[in-house]
Computed example of a mutant assay.
Amino acid sequence: MSSQIAVVAGRRRWSADQKLSILREAFGSDGSIGATCKRHAIGSGQLYTWRRRALAGDLDGLKRTAPPSFAEVDMSVSTAAMMGTGQIGIELPSGVRLTVDAAVDAGALARVMSVLAR
């Protein structure tokens, strides 16, 4: 009785380009998931994980943070504010106008403005 045992040592590393190529091969118009898995000696679970990550834009495993978004804000000081009422008028490009007291919490104001700027 003869038996063979294959030993795989270590983990293989695939570049994002290699993963995309394998995904195109498997999910292309003439693709075969089973044949692709056999040809590259990977499991179908790995293939579907790569596919999910590719669709999410995270194929290389590096988490991408969303770029910060900024809203153009014109700030003006009304005559009443210059007279000591302590109010600040803010007009967003969307036409929304805010009037806040000079003692407003800056963090709270930033949260409100981020929602209004969407």
Rank of each mutant, 00 (worst) to 15 (best):
I88N: 03
S76G: 11
E72L: 11
A108C: 12
P68C: 00
G28N: 06
T85C: 05
A117V: 03
M83K: 08
S44Y: 07
T85V: 03
A54S: 05
F70H: 11
T65R: 14
M75R: 07
A80R: 03
E72Q: 14
V96F: 08
L23K: 03
G107M: 07
W14H: 13
S21Q: 13
A35Q: 12
S3H: 13
R118L: 14
V112S: 12
A6L: 14
R39K: 15
R97V: 05
M75I: 15
G34W: 04
S114V: 12
R24K: 14
I5N: 14
R118Q: 15
A16W: 01
R13N: 11
P68L: 00
V104Q: 03
A102F: 03
Q18P: 12
S3G: 12
S2C: 11
R52P: 04
V77D: 00
A56G: 00
L92S: 03
D58G: 01
T36A: 13
L98P: 05
S76A: 14
V115H: 15
Q4M: 12
S32H: 10
S114E: 15
Q46P: 03
L98K: 02
R39C: 04
A106P: 13
I5T: 15
L109G: 05
V104D: 01
S29F: 12
G34R: 10
G84M: 01
M82V: 08
T99N: 09
R53Y: 01
G10I: 01
T99D: 04
P93S: 15
A26C: 11
S76R: 12
V112D: 10
S32K: 09
A110T: 11
G107S: 11
R11N: 10
E91I: 11
I88C: 09
S32Q: 10
L62M: 09
D105M: 09
Q18G: 13
A110W: 09
P68A: 03
D17P: 06
A35T: 07
A26K: 06
I42Q: 05
R11Q: 13
Y48I: 06
A66Q: 04
V112Q: 14
W50A: 00
